[in-house]
Simulated scan of single mutants.
Amino acid sequence: MLEKNVSKIIIGLIFVLIALQVTQPAASKAPDLPNNSCADCHRQLLFSSESQRQFIDIRIKHLESGISCSIVCHEDKLNKSTASTYAMWSISTHALFEVTCEKCHGGDPLKVLKQEAHVGISNSSILRANTPEMCGKCHGPELDEFKSSQHFKKLESNQEGPAPACITCHQAHSVRVLTASEIEDFCSNCHNNITGINPAVPKKAESALSSVRELQLEISKARSSVLEAKALGKDVAAAEADLESAKTILKNTPSVWHRFNLTYFDTEVHKGITDALNAEKAMPEETETAVPTKAPGFEVFLLVSGLLAAYLLKRH
């Protein structure tokens, strides 16, 4: 009797297990995902590191939930880079003067379709070593000066070690112009005691750029002096020539800087300062303002009237 009951219990358990197997939903399978799914590229990942195991766990959860790795969640690096590049360019001097992408990269900005607009795009022109020639298409004087510099000679020779090109100092898309307060730290990236590349350069560069501000101030003062002297009818021909010489030197400082000969640059700037100081002499400074002598007039009349009034009062 006991054996029959045990047999019935076993048979009952088997039926229960079969019923549970039938009623239990099938295990979740990976849904059909679009072509940009992680699974399309990452099906063969191995559990060889903790980071890979974590990634696989995330992938499995995504697959079970029917989530594909689309640009909505994981924007590709190219798009992120492009957005950042555009943001930097949009506040640059290039943007201000409408120097747009095709000027450096090529392509056709008049086309609407991406494939057509990108025809002619070349990566060779934006290679670091090629940037001087590319930038020189618009910045000819700067290129001419740069070609005489040690920086250019090292860049052209393909020697090992630092060899700055245009984008080293100005950046590719922000197109920054370094100020005197920034130049010392920037030059120190290459010119320092560790590299042994003339560590005195950064301080000299800061001093040289600072002198440009002095030149600007002296030109402003000289301009005022020349205008004032001309208004008074003075001969200002020599002063105007000195002023024009100083202004020409100031105008050429951006290109002359790219020679990276700090001694020459400093000499030129101080020559401009001297010219501006000479121009200021068109209107010499007066130490004292002479008080004009007044002819006898109303004051004498008052004095005589007072004496006469006193005499008459005394008589009475």
Rank of each mutant, 00 (worst) to 15 (best):
158 N>W: 09
155 L>V: 10
121 I>T: 12
147 K>T: 04
161 G>R: 00
172 A>V: 04
165 A>T: 15
132 P>Q: 05
164 P>K: 00
121 I>R: 15
147 K>A: 05
160 E>C: 02
148 S>Y: 09
156 E>H: 14
154 K>G: 08
136 G>Y: 01
121 I>L: 11
141 P>S: 03
130 N>K: 05
160 E>F: 13
124 S>D: 10
127 L>V: 06
129 A>L: 07
150 Q>T: 12
174 S>Q: 07
133 E>C: 01
169 C>M: 03
123 N>A: 09
124 S>K: 08
140 G>M: 08
143 L>W: 06
149 S>P: 02
145 E>N: 12
161 G>K: 03
134 M>K: 13
168 T>F: 02
121 I>Q: 14
160 E>I: 12
126 I>H: 01
146 F>R: 01
156 E>A: 15
143 L>T: 05
167 I>W: 07
164 P>D: 00
149 S>F: 02
145 E>K: 05
165 A>R: 00
157 S>M: 05
135 C>E: 07
157 S>D: 11
162 P>R: 01
121 I>N: 09
127 L>S: 09
164 P>M: 00
139 H>W: 00
149 S>E: 08
144 D>N: 14
126 I>P: 01
146 F>N: 04
159 Q>G: 08
121 I>G: 10
153 K>Q: 14
128 R>Y: 15
153 K>R: 09
173 H>W: 14
163 A>Y: 06
128 R>S: 12
150 Q>P: 02
129 A>D: 13
166 C>Y: 03
140 G>I: 09
124 S>W: 06
158 N>A: 14
151 H>V: 10
163 A>G: 08
135 C>M: 13
157 S>I: 03
135 C>L: 08
135 C>F: 11
124 S>R: 00
161 G>P: 00
138 C>L: 12
